[in-house]
Design a protein around this nucleic acid. Structure first.
Lengths: 255, 255
DNA sequence: CGCCTTATTGATGATTCTCAAGCAAGGTGG
DNA sequence: CCACCTTGCTTGAGAATCATCAATAAGGCG
């Protein structure tokens, strides 16, 4: 029982797969997430500075790359894939506080240790910045600070929505909210490129830990929604939204 | 039933009691919360600028001063009293996302409308800044931006803790966590100035809406803790912590 | 003093969790 | 190529925590 948590929480060494120290000069210029990430406040002319500070990092599925409570040495900017951010209780209960999609900036911690853990859901690519490099960038590019404040404010709004969900919504409302959020977040379409068809990279267990439910309740709720004709549950991780309006009514609590 | 929400959510006109437009020049210099608030990054010499931008505002108990969804016109810095911040569902369910104590900065919203509502718990005094004045201050005092980022990061950490509480903790663990948080937050001691004796300004209903429980469950849990000798429940809003260690064990989930 | 709000406590019930079994898919090794 | 194992999902039965409904008591305030 005493070693259960370490087993459940990715006890494998959290070594990070590191690319070169600093990337090519045109790396940031051609970055796919630049338009939506915090990097976009750094001008074309200064992009070499940015690229010099960044270390491209590839994290395989299931690998943890931020450990809750560990010294906060690095910041990450997700460029592809999805990561889960979570907090855990000593007995193994876990709460996923958010999923970090491409463009998401990670590591905003005032204290010198991470307040949450992070683990790759699928293969994650991220730009890693050391605390020192980040401090230099912040000193040299004041606009970056304002951009980070904007980012943090957005996360706060998301966190408040999640608190409302966790504290006051029923299981059905939670799952409906989740599906709509995923749809709106414009997550990658499935292989068929079908409209309204989501590819959820995370498992039912992840969804349960995100929504404060159990795997069984998530599964049952999805089955119920399917029986109501609201969604189609495809093979793998595909879900098709059939009645977004009814899901919306559910998610808002009008049911 | 249709008018229940408006009744439940402070339907009285949300007029704000406004002091003078701008305060005396020495107002900020003698401010009790200056050491812990964001204002402390503005130097002695520039304090007149700060005082000129601030409007002292007094909000009576129960009065709402931020309406969820309304245009975000002002920022607030609490100087005394406690405010509750909340989000609500159309049918009246409510989640309090946090209590704002003296020193707390309110209104960090990137969008042009507030993402949450705010209401005074007891009598609240706050410095109010218009959006325009705030933008000027941010332009003129870059350190303020960094300080606000720090503030936002702290709130994010608190929000993540609250998500863990709401998603994964039992009723007893939630109440224990709440009591310890209130104790650590160094809330004002009660009239006797007794150590470990908390004066909680909020009602059981507020606590319930904060912890994602019902009034009855909060009351029952406090009674249970009293029966276990962990706390004393005094008259009014006084609670005395008798066994902080056992509460800590409970709050951490080791029970 | 009467009314209203708040808190406490009890009885009952419902949503969700726990425990359990079965199934499908994918990987591995003989 | 197929048995075997592992992982993840689904579904069922029963249990438990917490919510709901209800009654009473205790303050605060006109």
């Amino acid at each position: 029982m005493s070693d259960m948590p370490s087993c459940q929480f990715e006890s494998r060494p959290r070594r990070i797969v590191i690319g070169s120290s600093g990337v090519q000069a045109d790396f940031c210029a051609t970055c796919a997430v630049r338009p939506t990430s915090v990097c976009n406040v750094i001008a074309q002319a200064d992009m070499a500075r940015l690229a010099e500070a960044a270390v491209e990092t590839i994290i395989p599925p299931g690998r943890g790359f931020i450990e809750e409570g560990a010294p906060a040495t690095d910041f990450f900017n997700i460029t592809s894939g999805t990561a889960k951010l979570f907090k855990a209780l000593p007995d193994g209960r876990r709460q996923i506080t958010g999923f970090a999609a491409p463009g998401h900036f990670l590591g905003l911690a005032v204290s010198d240790s991470y307040a949450f853990g992070a683990e790759a859901v699928d293969t994650v690519r991220a730009c890693r910045f050391s605390r020192e490099k980040m401090a230099e960038l912040l000193d040299d590019f004041p606009r970056l600070e304002r951009r980070l404040l904007e980012e943090a404010s957005n996360e706060l709004v998301a966190a408040q929505n999640q608190m409302l969900l966790l504290g006051r919504k029923t299981a059905r409302e939670r799952v409906a909210s989740f599906l709509l959020d995923q749809m709106r977040a414009g997550m990658p379409l499935d292989q068929n490129g079908q409209r309204g068809s989501l590819h959820l990279p995370m498992t039912r267990g992840d969804i349960a830990d995100y929504l404060g439910l159990t795997i069984e309740t998530v599964s049952r709720t999805l089955s119920w929604m399917r029986s109501q004709g609201m969604i189609d549950v495809g093979k793998g991780y595909a879900i098709t939204i059939r009645a977004a309006g009814r899901l919306d009514t559910l998610a808002a609590g009008n049911s």
